Computed example of a mutant assay.
Amino acid sequence: MRHTIENEFLTVTVETKGAELVSVVDKATGAEMMWDGQKDVWPRRAPILFPYCGKLNGGHYTLDGQTWEGGQHGFGRDFEHEFVGAENGAMRFVLRANEETRKKLPRDFALESAFVLDGRTLRQTITVTNTGDRELRFGFGFHPGFALPFDDKHTTTDYELRFDAPQTPVVIETGATSGLVTGETRVMMENSDVIALDDRMFDHDSTCMSQLTAKTLSVVEKDTGRRITVGLEGFAYTLIWSAPGNPNLHFVCIEPWHSLPDTETFGGDWNEKPCAAALAAGESWNTTLEMTFDR
């Protein structure tokens, strides 16, 4: 089921499955600014990645003396989240641990999603609470996809990704087929604030950038200045991605993450896996994705 909030600028719609942001419409123009989820290209729009990002080495991990299977990006995006309510330009959802989630992660938790509109800015805040009596370790990442081009008068090369300050990103390499962290790194560019866009740039899959100092990364229409801006502060990693194998970019994802996929040599022990947080009973952790739609 879908639920909506709006203000004078934007109409925002969220799906209860995965508490996934599925639509942001500019009210002045009627333009849809999120990717539309075409199944033959990429059927998602803005999934949340919980309780880990990327892939597990071998597709499983060990915890409490047992082996647990897991697909890419965890399971938070795949379950129905309870709609808590909407008022005053805000709405909330929650996924609580249950019999089905414990088949994937044997821990108790509450995963809350809050969406708040402030002018042309949408803030999506995730709060994870340990509702059990054992330590809760987890990773987390955001994965919003923004539609390209903004209109039928522009093509991919009319856009660029632009940091708010010059950067020298260090790319964390992943295996071409495994999706696992190889341990190799490279410098993506030196002291530049622009990443050019072209239709073939994601044929190798995503690019994971670390050691960023920028506060924001925007997808910018060069001739008009129209843009969508994503906040990066507080995130260890930022990925950019679009579905490979298509003749044109239909969308671009700007993905702030707090954790990484497994390494190619990781042994699988969940308690040794680097995480976004390790919560004692009753503790909570939160993170906020800020998106500004200047269209």
Rank of each mutant, 00 (worst) to 15 (best):
R2S: 11
E6H: 08
E8N: 03
L10M: 00
E15D: 11
G18K: 00
A19P: 03
D26C: 07
K27Y: 00
T29D: 09
G30E: 11
A31C: 07
E32P: 04
E32K: 06
M33L: 15
M34W: 00
A46L: 00
I48T: 13
I48N: 13
F50S: 01
C53H: 11
G58I: 01
G65I: 05
Q66K: 13
Q66E: 13
E69Q: 11
Q72T: 07
H73D: 05
D78G: 05
E80Y: 06
H81P: 00
V84M: 09
A86L: 05
V94N: 04
R102I: 07
K103I: 03
D108W: 04
L111A: 08
E112H: 06
S113R: 12
A114C: 14
A114W: 09
V116L: 13
V116M: 12
R123M: 13
T125V: 08
I126K: 03
V128C: 07
D133W: 09
D133Y: 10
R134Q: 12
R134Y: 04
E135I: 10
G139C: 07
H143L: 05
P149I: 13
F150K: 09
H154R: 14
T157A: 15
D158N: 12
E160A: 12
L161V: 08
R162A: 07
D164L: 09
A165K: 12
P169M: 04
V171M: 12
E173Q: 12
T182C: 07
E184Y: 14
M188Y: 15
E190A: 12
D193M: 13
V194C: 10
L197F: 10
R200I: 11
M201N: 13
F202W: 07
H204G: 14
C208T: 12
C208W: 12
M209Q: 04
L212F: 00
T213D: 09
T216L: 11
L217T: 07
S218C: 11
D223E: 15
R227A: 14
L232P: 00
A236L: 06
L239W: 09
W241K: 11
N246Q: 15
F251P: 10
C253S: 09
I254T: 08
E255L: 05
W257C: 00
S259M: 06
T263L: 02
E264T: 05
E264W: 05
T265S: 08
G267K: 05
G268T: 01
N271E: 00
E272S: 03
A276S: 08
A280K: 15
A281C: 08
E283V: 03
N286C: 07
R295Q: 13
R295N: 15
